[in-house]
Design a protein around this nucleic acid. Structure first.
Lengths: 150, 150
DNA sequence: CAAAAATAAATTGTGCACAATTAAACATTA
DNA sequence: TAATGTTTAATTGTGCACAATTTATTTTTG
């Protein structure tokens, strides 16, 4: 009795489920969505929150420094920072000693947000339901990938 | 001799470097950038490539099915699929048996792209420089997070 | 010093990503 | 079956994200 030929095996590397890239892409968007209700209470978007994490730590930074730390360019940062400036969270001014640079400095309203953001990291950790060990392992692999691709 | 008081320790959870979320966000964008030169040769964006991965495997899917698999809604997919339709890569038509659904079907020009995309996964693996074990571990942690957040 | 090169932001244009709303088709049920 | 509710896309509006270009300033170099 003749057997039917085996079905042609698709190049499994071209399947969505074989990709490592898709989970990264999907998880990244899901994380942003998980932040959303927490950040909405502060009238913040996720990239704006990242800018604040840096400003709460450093008080003031140039656009270039923000870009280096966040891996974003001025095409993204300039309009984002203008929106944050409009809300009086930060100031944008040229560095008098090098007029090419723009210094972004925290304003009182921006500094005040830090207190309201205190709970966010723990709330996110709670949503993610990952052990300390898992998080460390994940971060290790991701930072490896990051240095590989940056 | 009086010791200086310890510097006030910033809530380390509110530092960018403590966050697991930032590496995911940054790596996701870096991966997209790494794909860019490879996909540009096929006139594709990364989300369009993801749609093709599914269509190459399934030949035709509804917008709803694409959305479920990619975790994207019609607000993102409709304009994206219209652009792909304009390039004659796929067709969009209502399902005659349920006019609410729109069936996305591969067209010859879209099917032809599969051959040209064959090399992409290996080229990406090469760029990422990760061992099989690392990739598996990373995917495991990410899919865990994905189910946790989805 | 003047010309050329490099640097830092801003601008322009395209394409996601998503919340919120709308519209149409279908399913359920009173 | 008419009214109600559900499902599926499309639409609208906002905010990234990034490539490519432009502008202004500073640095380097011939």
């Amino acid at each position: 009795m003749a057997t039917t030929p085996p079905p042609p095996v698709k190049n499994s590397l071209l399947k969505l489920e074989s990709q490592i890239c898709f989970p990264v892409y999907a998880v990244s968007r899901l994380i942003t969505k998980a932040y959303q209700p927490l950040l909405q209470a502060l009238d913040l978007t996720y990239p704006q929150y990242l800018v604040f994490l840096l400003l709460w730590e450093h008080e003031q930074l140039t656009v270039k420094e923000l870009g280096e730390k966040l891996l974003l360019d001025s095409g993204t940062l300039t309009p984002l920072l203008k929106r944050m400036e409009q809300k009086q969270w930060l100031s944008r001014r040229r560095d008098p000693r090098d007029e090419r640079s723009v210094i972004i400095a925290l304003l009182p309203a921006g500094r005040a947000l830090e207190a309201q953001a205190q709970q966010i990291p723990l709330q996110m950790l709670d949503k993610m339901q990952m052990s300390e060990a898992e998080i460390t392992a994940l971060r290790t692999h991701l930072t490896h990938l990051l240095t590989q691709l940056a």
